[in-house]
């Protein structure tokens, strides 16, 4: 079965969900998906569908990198760690010293996106530093 057939539902959802700059291509046996979702909900729905087709992502035949367009400087983001606090670091990297923490579900301010992995944030308490972007979700 081809990858586009196996992941038909995922591709259909990506195409109908209003993903900007959507790119889908099979390269070296891996379905590569790129784009920018209009909201965190849309991005999460795509991941739910992907997980339904390939439980726990063990087939290793998709790489999906979907950004969220509302994650822009000046917006609010929610901490989406599983249950622990999120480290706020002095610079963009896990080798940087921890200068603060944000609690799970805390809403903090996104100051800028240093790069795809690290975002500069400020908490309501005024703590400012870098957090790992994967644990931050734009608030709608």
């Amino acid at each position: 079965m081809s990858l586009t057939t196996k992941y038909q539902a995922l591709i259909a959802e990506a195409k109908s969900a209003g993903i900007d700059d959507l790119q889908i291509a099979e390269i070296d046996g891996v379905l590569q998906i790129r784009g920018t979702a209009p909201s965190a909900d849309v991005k999460n729905k795509l991941w739910d569908i992907y997980n339904q087709i390939d439980p726990n992502f063990l087939s290793s035949d998709v790489v999906m990198n979907v950004d969220v367009s509302t994650a822009v400087a000046g917006s609010k983001v929610r901490v989406i760690t599983n249950n622990s606090n999120l480290n706020i670091r002095k610079g963009p990297g896990t080798d940087q010293p921890i200068i603060g923490k944000a609690a799970k579900d805390e809403i903090i301010n996104l100051i800028s996106r240093a790069n795809d992995q690290w975002w500069l944030v400020r908490t309501e308490d005024g703590e400012e530093g870098y957090c790992y972007a994967q644990y931050l979700e734009p608030v709608e």
Binding site: D28, V30, N56, F57, S60, V63, N82, D116, Q117, Q134
Partner: peptide
């Protein structure tokens, strides 16, 4: 509960493949 977070973090790096087998 955390496998999706791991996969999302690695896919965000735009690799050729993320081998979870």
């Amino acid at each position: 509960a955390r496998v999706q977070t791991l996969k999302m973090s690695l896919d965000a790096l735009n690799p050729k493949k993320v081998d979870f087998t």
